[in-house]
Design a protein around this nucleic acid. Structure first.
Lengths: 248, 248
DNA sequence: ACCTGAACACCGTTCAAGT
DNA sequence: ACCTGAACACCGTTCAAGT
């Protein structure tokens, strides 16, 4: 995390130092009533996709809208409220329509997992921030309903279904967000990271760190896409076993 | 996340407005050579434990040290470097000594999982930030070595051990960090969240959301400690099965 | 060589003022 | 009623100046 690039400091206008703007108003006044939540959210998404979540400031958003930065406060209580709307809107666009049951509970879980994972990878720079937020909005409810249905189809009693709903939800978001975090490190830095890791582990005491010092290069580099499915299948197997042999 | 409290704005001194400090220097000059990385890290930990990670600013750290905020730059390149040191130091203090093999690979995995989880719950306000950072320092290597040993004891071939190392590492950090995130929401807000969730789900179309609208109250509230072990046991079972039946 | 002070370029947020 | 401008209280970071 921490720092996705070093700003860009505007291009031409908005000179607050330098020449103090000819005389008249700098930019034309934004048309009355042309601002609303939906317009602002769209602009915010454009900014975020271009500059990353850390580039999404009121300043940048104002520039994108051709409006004063503070005009957003008329439509959102604070930045966090705007952020939650952005997160849920992105989710909805990514997989709001895709959650249609296949009729097979296991396929259904794999489907929702794949959708969420793909979404995080697509918006890799915000994945970590997104993964920790509960929006309490439509797309979130859709996902819960869909997963709950799958778990009931599997034959899990209500209380166990609730536990596994949580397990799957956390697992999918967390693992996908980790995958995204490495995916969005710029490749140069990722290679440097890898080399550094090997150098570091080379310097370790081979008695204290036999595994690490022996085959560090073979073991450490990877963030392998198979890891995600490995754990998911393990959880699915566990669910299947419980549904069969459980108190029925 | 977002906002762990609304600052405190100093108590008495440092009045930059109000009265502009009698005349002489405000605070005594910090003794020469009394500042070093270790002293700064300790102070940073004190501040973080008191005010949360978001309260750990150079300003606050300077005050804690009785030194100028910018004096820290002589000892750390930037804030991120300081943060990584803080993270690894905390890890080391929490479970640096605890990773002693039990002789049973399964017990060993449960041990390292319990230690890391406990650590995140203890430092719940930074858990989410910590979970995404690789420090490449001693405690991290210790954890990897310990886990790798357990997986080899289980009988996993090297490549599969590497994959499962990643799976376990991500699973443990991610699940613990989610647990911590809810744990550190202040209780009042958590209850409000819960009620809000029920109200929201009440308003849903019962045809489109049968499970949710029916027994939302029973299903949604919990962040149950059992969830963590549920997934962990599933992964352990999967490892055991692979180690037995795999290419041996 | 080590610490300080002032300054810079940002943040989010508030509120009185313009239209 | 909606948008703007100026101001406030912060950030991290740089750099010339003090000791």
């Amino acid at each position: 995390m921490a720092g996705e690039g070093r700003k860009a400091t505007g291009g031409a206008s908005t000179g607050s130092a330098g020449a103090p703007a000819p005389a008249g108003s700098a930019r034309p006044r934004r048309a009355r009533d042309s601002l609303n939540r939906s317009v602002i959210i769209d602009a915010a998404i454009r900014v975020a996709e271009r500059d990353g979540l850390s580039g999404l400031t009121f300043q940048a958003l104002g520039t994108e809208l051709g409006a004063h930065a503070t005009s957003i406060y008329r439509h959102f209580r604070d930045k966090d409220e705007l952020l939650l709307e952005v997160i849920d809107t992105l989710r909805d666009r990514s997989y709001g329509e895709a959650l249609v049951s296949t009729g097979d509970w296991r396929e259904d879980v794999l489907l929702v997992a794949a959708q969420i994972r793909q979404h995080y990878l697509r918006y890799a720079p915000f994945a970590h921030d997104m993964s920790a937020r509960s929006t309490h909005r439509r797309t979130e409810f859709l996902t819960v309903e869909f997963t709950l249905n799958a778990l009931e189809q599997a034959g899990l009693p209500p209380e166990e279904a609730a536990l596994h709903l949580r397990l799957l939800g956390n697992y999918i978001r967390a693992m996908a967000s980790f995958e995204a975090t490495v995916a969005c490190m710029d490749p140069e830095l990722r290679v440097k990271d890898r080399v550094q890791m090997q150098v570091d582990s080379q310097g370790l005491d081979p008695v204290e760190f036999p595994h690490l010092s022996q085959h560090a290069s073979a073991l450490l580099p990877l963030e392998d896409p198979r890891v995600f499915d490995l754990g998911l299948e393990a959880i699915l197997d566990s669910i299947a076993a419980r549904a069969d042999g459980g108190p029925r």
